[in-house]
Design a protein around this nucleic acid. Structure first.
Lengths: 242, 242
DNA sequence: CGATTCCTTGATATGAGTCAACAGGTGTGG
DNA sequence: CCACACCTGTTGACTCATATCAAGGAATCG
């Protein structure tokens, strides 16, 4: 599969792009590199010179408080360009780090700038992606602000499932995703001890399980209900049910 | 003051715009209207035909859970176009409501579309604004996820002060902003009772006070420290110290 | 196979929620 | 212009969800 395939599919799913637009995207110089887990792609206060497309593997955004507590802001999957905002905001306001071994495609700001100035439909499509990213933040704020620990966890896993399904990475309600309990804790604003207990409860109810790198939703309906998950905010391409 | 003045100032502070760009912005057809407090500008699942510039007054974004709990996602001030994303995402994923009596400038998607297709620098400037909006969401996620009740409140008030200062609405560490304790509770993910108690503590320490529509930060340094507030994420125009 | 890292468990602590009641303003309609 | 209703803010008593602390066990990795 071409390293741009997922991105192009996503952009097309929300914006009309003609052959020239697609050709221009494909023509972007992309510098591929394979990196280890827990590799920083960009760190807070950096001034990156380009953006990174996730070709394979996963990453997360995080931010630290003055006291050193970490909050994970979002998880990222193949086809995402999590640091696209660095094109317009020179200074990073968060850390971007790989979770798994990953393949990244680095594209310079200069090249993206040229692309969006010459192909306004592509600019629109990329802008739209960043707006969906915002919508995901809104859903997380709702999640952190009003939901119980178990609902938060369920919502997160339901969201990940939906997003992964759209790029064809969900298989029979299971998906590969390297989530440690401490990462979950930092993402959900909980302690690791409590995440462990919530997880055990879900496990014993046969609702879901996370083992190693595998997330299993035994009962998707229950997960969706427990998390109050409504996929509308993802403004998705139609659910990729194969 | 021209109804576009604040917006234009903001856009220029982050992006080079030439005279033609500015002229094109000024030429946008804007339909002004004055609305009462608690007026919905757009609601979840709506498909708005345009965006609303806040010319004067304030607004908030909120989202409800299935169980009816409300989370306030952000507060908006003059010069903001909070629903700009509706240009690219047809369906609203949150409610947008005025707080105070407000003057809104409605601009159709068609007109904005035409503007951004003809003036790519303006497109960039608007996109950049939406990216700052995202950065604010990230800061809120950090706030909700890791900070104590008092730190959350302090952070929120410090952020509002900074943003209002950039449009010249802060006077000697006081600013007008119509925050009820129950709105604060919904914004901070707390109960109103607890907000009340946190507020009393700050009051008794002479750190800050909120009375009626007036927020007073007796000791800005303490507020900033209590909230762990670092304005970098606002990617601000230089602090408007007059 | 030794060493981290990750997970699990129990005991205890606490920040914040809930419930309930009341007071002070504010606005409104009669 | 008063009376009533309705917010908003305040207070106290009690509860509960989740954190913290501490320690042992299971994986995973070099």
């Amino acid at each position: 599969m071409h390293h741009m395939a997922l991105l192009i599919r996503r952009l097309r799913s929300g914006t009309e792009l003609d052959d020239l637009d697609i050709a221009a995207i494909r023509a972007l110089p992309v510098q591929l590199r394979s990196v280890a887990p827990e590799t920083p792609i960009a760190l807070e206060n950096d001034h990156p010179k380009g953006c990174s497309l996730i070709v394979s593997g996963f990453a997360y955004r995080s931010k630290l408080t003055e006291t050193g507590k970490r909050q994970i802001l979002s998880f990222h999957i193949p086809g995402d360009i999590p640091d696209l905002q660095s094109l317009l905001l020179k200074t990073m306001d968060y850390d971007l780090v790989t979770i798994s071994r990953a393949t990244l495609g680095f594209i310079t700001h200069a090249d993206i700038s040229h692309l969006i100035d010459s192909r306004s439909a592509v600019a629109r499509a990329l802008w739209r992606e960043t707006m969906i990213d915002s919508a995901v933040f809104r859903a997380w704020i709702l999640n952190l602000g009003v939901r119980s620990a178990s609902a938060r966890l369920a919502h997160l896993l339901a969201e990940l499932r939906q997003r992964l399904a759209e790029v064809g990475l969900v298989d029979d309600n299971e998906y590969q995703f390297p989530l440690t309990q401490s990462a979950l804790a930092d993402a959900l604003g909980l302690s690791t001890v409590h995440v462990n207990r919530v997880l055990q409860e879900f496990r014993s109810q046969r609702v879901l399980d996370i083992r190693k790198n595998l997330v299993t939703l035994f009962d998707v309906k229950k997960v969706v209900a427990a998390g109050g998950f409504d996929p509308a905010y993802l403004h998705g391409s139609r659910p990729a049910t194969p």
